[in-house]
Design a protein around this nucleic acid. Sequence first.
DNA 1: TGTACATCAGTGAACGCGCGTTCACTGATGTAC
DNA 2: TGTACATCAGTGAACGCGCGTTCACTGATGTAC
Lengths: 237, 237
Amino acid sequence: MPASPDPQPRSAPAGVRARVREELTREIKAAARKQMAESGSAGLSLRAVARELGMASSAVYRYFPSRDELLTALIVDAYSAVAGAAETAEADQPRADFSGRWLAAAQGVRGWAQANPQEYALIFGSPVPGYRAPQDTIDPAARIPLLLIQIVADAAAAGQVAPVLELPPSVQSDLAALRAQIATNLDESTLARAAMGWMQLVGSISFELFGHLNNVIHGYAEYFDFQMEVVAAELGL
Amino acid sequence: MPASPDPQPRSAPAGVRARVREELTREIKAAARKQMAESGSAGLSLRAVARELGMASSAVYRYFPSRDELLTALIVDAYSAVAGAAETAEADQPRADFSGRWLAAAQGVRGWAQANPQEYALIFGSPVPGYRAPQDTIDPAARIPLLLIQIVADAAAAGQVAPVLELPPSVQSDLAALRAQIATNLDESTLARAAMGWMQLVGSISFELFGHLNNVIHGYAEYFDFQMEVVAAELGL
DNA sequence: TGTACATCAGTGAACGCGCGTTCACTGATGTAC
DNA sequence: TGTACATCAGTGAACGCGCGTTCACTGATGTAC
């Protein structure tokens, strides 16, 4: 026999209408993602999305006030998804295995990118022309770099350190500002290495996904892992 | 008094008509480039190009059989231009200054990319959806990597070598095949490092140009140079 | 609990636009004899 | 050198298409009393 009826559950505070609305919002984004996978972000069309969902094109405007807003939602979702993939993969590793954690995070990013190449291109490829990323994208975009920095900071705290690089003044001050902003104990030199590793990571995935390694590298996964191991070693992990 | 009339000069073997044709082909590509700079590769439109040149849109078809062919020409031109920029910058350095040559080549790429961001995005950003790069793009695309490898090979020949990395079997065999194909004396380990440096180079420029370093790095040029110096050091230059 | 009203979701037509590509055509330029 | 013909460059109209966005509208769902 059921217990006394719950008060409205958290996930649907405003009743049925709100729940349906959330559901359709999700469906619109899913259809948009599917469409993007076929024809890229430039081919994303509200009318095609509406068609796929069997609704009037004007109905989509009840959910997203313009095509750009839909694009923004997709970008935010993509950043969150790839960050989630990296975080999940990294969380599976023993805390003290710093290079294992770095590699796992990197593989998490690569695995997600392979499964969702157009979404990857949306956030790490050419910016959509005429589109300006709003503030909402900043926080989700920062999650992976912060995760990587955390790994390196944990390693440093455990005494695993990389040789110190001498930084030019402007690099030193840029990184000091970053260091203050994210409140990390990592010194600027190691921060610089970590940032380089992050760019290497993205650069390598982009090369693979965008076809610059076609007919040159065949064992992509092994090649990527190898690179990330070299990076981890240079970071002292 | 003029010497006896030359036979037709090489550059215009078929007379006036051919010369005019070449000239207009150039103008069409220039207009297309200008348009791309404003609205990206997805916004490239034959009609707009024709409009800019004051001709009927159908006239463009006398020069490029389709929009895709025009895009291919732009891609080939972009690869050639950026490679030229790298080669020119590198050629200015003393032959024995290997890290200076690497840095100059890298700066050449970055300088060109900053001056032509949309063309950079065209070749190093997201691939144009539905577009398949034809064979013509392969050779020009290879020029920069070959230049970088040449620098490292020269350094190795002069006795400057980086610590040898142990490569996983599949990486070893991929790079052995590459080594045979380009007929270099560089060992696979150093080839692997050079390739990583090339990806770091492109990754870093993409991060800067695509806005991933906004509000984090302010001294872009110094930051880039710093990274390339680290890479050069790791390459033993 | 029942009713009156406000809010909301979804419709379908329309506006105005630009696109790639084709086609039959007109003159001008080049070529062969 | 002069003429007849072939090739080429460029035109303008048209085809068929899809797009983002707006608008007045109809029912259905939710809210206040």
